[in-house]
């Protein structure tokens, strides 16, 4: 029984390790964290590689209307599209997508 005692007392006497998330002591995600997906419409050449490799079909590229539809609630943030994109039009932020009360898709218009 006494084996846990030193740990307990040490914890009791030192400051808790909790990262008090919404308030302070928050640890930012590390630099390479796979978070939100951002599209850079100016760079995109509508090749559709991202839509083809996406394992969860979260990206749709329509050539006719020059639109990209991205569903953050289907995306698994695996970064495969980021790696495949030749013109580097897809970037990944280290911040994660925020929860929402309803689902929705993002539509990105690609200029001519």
């Amino acid at each position: 029984m006494p084996w846990m005692l030193p740990t307990i007392l040490r914890n009791l006497l030192s400051r808790p390790v909790t990262r008090r998330y919404p308030f302070d002591d928050v640890r930012e995600p590390f630099a390479g964290y796979k978070g939100r997906i951002d599209f850079d419409a100016d760079r995109c050449d509508l090749c559709g590689d991202c839509a083809r490799v996406c394992p969860s079909l979260a990206i749709e590229v329509t050539l006719e209307s020059r639109q990209i539809t991205y569903d953050p609630f289907k995306c698994i943030y695996c970064a495969t599209c980021v790696e495949i994109c030749l013109p580097r039009a897809i970037g990944q932020d280290r911040r994660y997508t925020k929860p929402a009360l309803s689902k929705g898709v993002e539509t990105i218009e690609v200029p001519v």
């Binding site: 994660y96 925020k98 929860p99 689902k103």
Partner: peptide, 19 residues
């Protein structure tokens, strides 16, 4: 409430519960 992420971070889960 929908919390996206695969897997969702604990921070996101806290956000979702707060929402």
């Amino acid at each position: 409430v929908y919390i996206p992420g695969c897997a969702a971070r604990p921070e996101a889960i806290i956000d979702g519960v707060v929402l």
